[in-house]
């Protein structure tokens, strides 16, 4: 069954309240969100395998802390789309603003267009696939998970990286502290292939390079002049 929330008249509060409490008891499997008009906090904190279609642009934190739900935004989104996501899938058909997928613990975020600054900051296990390019300082302090960039990456990619791995198809303007380019292994090709398929992109995995942590910042070292 399908249910529609028209945000031109209704409120985000009613939408989220239904997704949190009404949904589980209902037979609704698909929720349509009409006229989102850039509203913030659309479909946040969902914990149910439901298909949510947002028909327009979203504001900040669309799909924040998502678990299980599949959320598709037919437009652009503001800051922190799918922030702290645990599981499920968030797909942005357009562009994403800053901090897309910030501190995500799991699930998949697909941005079909470009993502702005700090995409994947502090990510903790989420997989992010960006069809276009990402802005500066992406994957800053990223701890776990994968960030696939089909376009180019800005300045300071992967600064202070922990164990997250970044794959880039295009040009990297510069790498951040402790991030280094590494040779692709068979496991990397398989991973990129799997992530591209999940996202619905048809690039050849051999076009990607791997960026990961050099692990030189993992321990204090006075002689290395680390400016902590």
């Amino acid at each position: 069954m399908e249910k529609t929330f028209d945000l031109a008249g209704g409120s985000v509060r009613d939408l989220n309240q239904f997704l949190h409490t009404g949904l589980a008891q209902s037979s609704v499997s698909r929720v349509e969100v009409a006229n989102p008009n850039g509203a913030h906090s659309i479909a946040v904190g969902v914990d149910h395998p439901v298909d949510i279609q947002v028909r327009g642009h979203g504001g900040y934190y669309v799909g924040g802390m998502n678990k299980q739900a599949t959320i598709t935004v037919h437009g652009n989104v503001g800051w922190g789309v799918a922030e702290n996501m645990m599981s499920g899938l968030v797909r942005v058909k357009g562009f994403a603003s800053e901090s897309a997928g910030a501190s995500g613990h799991g699930g998949t975020l697909v941005v079909e267009g470009d993502a702005s600054l700090r995409c994947g900051i502090s990510m903790k296990g989420i997989d992010i696939v960006v069809g276009g390019s990402v802005g500066n300082y992406s994957a800053f302090m990223a701890q776990a998970g994968h960030l696939v960039i089909c376009g180019d990456a800005g300045e300071g990619l992967g600064d202070s990286l922990y164990e997250a791995v970044i794959y880039v198809r295009g040009r990297i303007r510069s790498l951040g502290a402790d991030a280094q380019e590494e040779p692709m292994t068979d496991a990397d090709y398989l991973k990129v292939d799997e992530l591209l398929k999940r996202a619905g992109f048809s690039h050849n995995p051999t076009e990607f390079k791997r960026v990961a942590s050099a692990r030189q910042l993992y321990h204090w070292n006075a002689d290395a002049d680390q400016e902590y």
């Binding site: 985000v12 509060r13 989220n16 309240q17 949190h20 409490t21 913030h40 906090s41 946040v44 904190g45 504001g59 900040y60 934190y61 924040g64 802390m65 800051w79």
Partner: peptide, 15 residues
């Protein structure tokens, strides 16, 4: 931004 972040936390926890 903090205004919006607090609003998000409230939405997630239903106020």
């Amino acid at each position: 931004d903090l205004v919006i972040k607090i609003q998000e936390l409230r939405e997630i926890t239903d106020w």
